[in-house]
Write a protein that binds this DNA or RNA. Structure first.
Length: 651
RNA sequence: GCCCCGAUAGCUCAGCUGGAUAGAGCAAUUGACUUCUAAUCAAUAGGUCGCAGGUUCGAAUCCUGCUCGGGGUGCCA
């Protein structure tokens, strides 16, 4: 039991005796903002005073008298307008630490009402190389799943692969037209990748060639508008002048965007025209865009050839993708891709239609929603289904198969509108008990503050990114400890390289965009995975040097002694691990756990500096410090494990 | 046009279901290694929390308006 939930439990009866709804008042009990006020503070007396029309301080003292805190808090004070400041009793704290020390779960209790969560994350398109954008979904989803499981919930992770979409039409088209048979025999995945990129280039070329004149015309139009605006005389009217300036500014930014778009198109065109072979094929395949789409349609309609090719390609692509997951040490319980649901799509539409929720509009089958202007389209005019249809089929499956209490979608925040509609339709359809949540995340930015791209404007491939992270980590490891063997260096590089990447991502608030930087990710100082891993390794160093018997420490603990204030602070932090995990799950934010582990490591570093274990001035003190060390190491390791990050005994 | 999100130290970011003097890391300056790992610690400096109003005992946090930026917006995913 962590202190916060214990305090809340004690306050609960008193508060619920005073008002009908006490949950929000309990939420106002929190860690103290400033340690000089104690360890925790209860802020509920102020709103309560207002609600009951009495003095907050009076209420506060009434609460303090009624709540049984004798054994839990050594100091309870009322301050300011009516804050109740609580200081945890040292004896209680020490008992908690002992309980954590002897417990494999570090004293974290399981939830009393376990629920079943389905977490949908990663979900890349197979056959397209994974890129930096997949990183966030994968890491965040994995961390949330692990935390859910640790606190006692059932978490079913499901990688909703894009294995049925247009990219297969493209590969099939490539296979039928541009296959290098020998290469395919030798390295099928590489050849399929090449075909995808080749067809992509040709399609982009034709699309760009078609779009470019339109864009250029639009550009001219804007230029004309600019000239008009510039020659407009505001005739001294300040308001009009301001308006004019604003319009001009907006126009310029629009023109910049357009210039960028034109440059992008020109680059796509140049890529083809600068390569004679590509250019030849571009000329020979003028309708490649439509034809690739036809291949997709044929696949979806069960065309035997395309179906056969898809069945041949899919395992190959998945194997390739698996290599990345292996490097990242990410596993899924299920990988039910879009193809898994394709036979259900017609039923989804007919069922919704039978129940009277759909409406035909411009030939498409739609579900109109009160709070959205645009409907959710579930079947296109040409009869094809959309990903909204698949998503509905997926919800239905997850409810029928797992009877989920909650489905979490760890997906880019740009799709928030899609999910709002999806959830609305699902509830309308009858799935109104389940918690449906879009766990949205922001974009990974480059150093220019724009979405992270390579210099040529392509998204950054994930396998190259991992290589780079590990190579840089290897260099650091080699420089830092030249005496170790190369194998050791590689092992260290793997753990700090991949760990650094994960931590850099997870330590940011998931909702925000963040700027990606190898330097910061692997920095030797600061709030990084390395810092936490280093703290862990230092503990292991202490345990080695003092020849401590950790099994004995854990099975036969001695008393905890707080000689130095930092020992108490470290101890308090340690028994608050469970609080951090609870907090992570309130809004599904792994960065809360990162912050906790960072603060824990900082306290340990202070402890390390001030409190020698080896030279402790009594055996009892030494034992107490060893216990703090062991618990610190296990908490850091356990916490990092939940984030999918490894540790090293030496680094 | 409409909808959503953001703006916090020089930089990168926490904090946002209202709480006491707004935090961290980096960068800058200073100090600490014959000491359990200096991949560390200690200290200094750095802020009109985009602007203007409002709500109240109390606002970075809630509301309104504005400025700037990003994203989305019926048949892509």
């Amino acid at each position: 039991m962590n202190p916060l939930s214990e305090i809340r439990a004690r306050f609960s009866t008193t508060l619920s005796g005073m008002v009908d709804e006490s949950d929000n008042l309990l939420a106002m009990i929190r860690p103290a903002g400033d340690s000089k006020f104690g360890d925790y503070q209860a802020n509920c007396a102020m709103p309560l005073g207002k609600q009951l029309g009495r003095s907050p301080r009076e209420i506060a003292s009434e609460i303090c008298e009624s709540v049984q805190l004798d054994d839990l808090c050594q100091k309870v004070e009322i301050a300011g307008p009516g804050f109740i400041n609580l200081t945890i009793d040292d004896a209680w704290l020490k008992r908690g630490l002992t309980a954590a020390l002897v417990d494999d779960r570090l004293g974290v209790t399981r939830v009393s009402e376990p629920k079943t969560f389905v977490i949908d994350y990663s979900s890349p398109n197979v056959a397209k190389p994974m890129h930096v954008g997949h990183v966030r979904s994968t890491f965040i989803g994995d961390a949330i799943s692990k935390v859910l499981r640790f606190v006692g919930h059932t978490a079913i992770s499901d990688n909703h692969l894009g294995d049925w979409g247009t990219q297969f039409g493209m590969i099939i088209y490539g296979y039928k037209n541009f296959l290098d048979e020998a290469a395919y025999q030798q390295e099928p995945v590489a050849e399929l990748g090449r075909l995808y990129k080749y067809v992509r280039k040709l399609m982009d070329y034709h699309a760009a060639a078609k779009r470019l004149p339109e864009l250029q015309a639009a550009q001219e139009e804007l230029k004309g508008k600019q000239t008009d605006l510039e020659s407009t005389d505001s005739q001294g009217d300040k308001k009009a002048e301001k308006q004019l300036k604003k319009q001009l500014r907006q126009l310029r930014s629009k023109m910049e965007d357009q210039a960028e778009a034109v440059a992008g198109l020109e680059a796509k065109i140049l890529e083809v025209t600068s390569d004679p072979e590509l250019e030849k094929d571009a000329v020979a395949h003028p309708n490649i865009n439509q034809n690739a789409q036809l291949e997709t349609a044929a696949l979806h309609e069960g065309d035997a050839t395309n179906q056969g090719l898809w069945e041949e390609f899919l395992p190959l692509c998945r194997q390739d993708m698996q290599k990345i997951y292996d490097r990242l040490d990410i596993k899924f319980d299920y990988e039910l891709g879009e193809s898994f649901y394709h036979n259900e799509l017609a039923n989804v539409v007919s069922d919704l239609t039978d129940k009277g929720y759909t409406k035909e509009s411009d030939g498409a089958i739609c579900v109109f929603l009160d709070n959205h202007n645009a409907p959710m389209i579930i079947q296109k005019r040409d009869g094809a289904y959309l990903y909204s249809t698949t998503d509905l089929a997926t919800i239905q499956y997850r409810m029928e198969k797992w009877n989920a209490d909650a489905c979490l979608y760890v997906v880019d925040h740009r799709q928030s509108e899609h999910f709002e509609k999806l959830f609305d339709v699902a509830r309308l359809w009858g799935f109104d008990e389940v918690e449906l949540a879009h766990v949205a995340f922001g974009t990974v930015m480059g150093p220019d503050g724009k979405p992270y791209k390579t210099r040529s404007g392509d998204t950054v491939g994930l396998s190259g990114l991992l290589d780079e992270a590990e190579n840089r980590a290897l260099e650091i490891a080699t420089n830092q400890n030249p005496e170790l063997t190369e194998d050791r260096h590689r092992e260290i590089a793997n753990v700090i390289g991949i760990g650094g990447l994960k931590y850099a991502d997870l330590s940011h608030n998931r909702g925000s965009d963040y700027e990606f930087s190898y330097e910061k990710m692997l920095a030797l100082r600061g709030n990084t995975a390395t810092y936490l891993q280093y703290s862990y390794a230092r503990v292991q160093g202490i345990l080695r040097r003092t020849e401590a018997d950790v099994d004995a420490i854990r099975t036969n603990p001695g008393e905890f002694i707080f000689e130095n204030d930092v020992e108490r602070q470290l101890g308090l932090k340690l028994i608050r691990f469970g609080e951090a995990l609870d907090e992570v799950l309130v809004e599904y934010k792994p960065n809360v756990l990162c912050n906790y582990l960072f603060e824990l490591s900082q306290l340990f570093a202070q402890f390390f500096d001030k409190c020698s274990v080896k030279d402790a001035n009594s055996e009892d003190l030494k034992k107490s410090r060893l216990q703090l060390c062991d618990l610190t190491a296990r908490t850091i390791r356990g916490g990092l494990e939940l984030l999918g990050i490894g540790v090293l005994d030496k680094m």
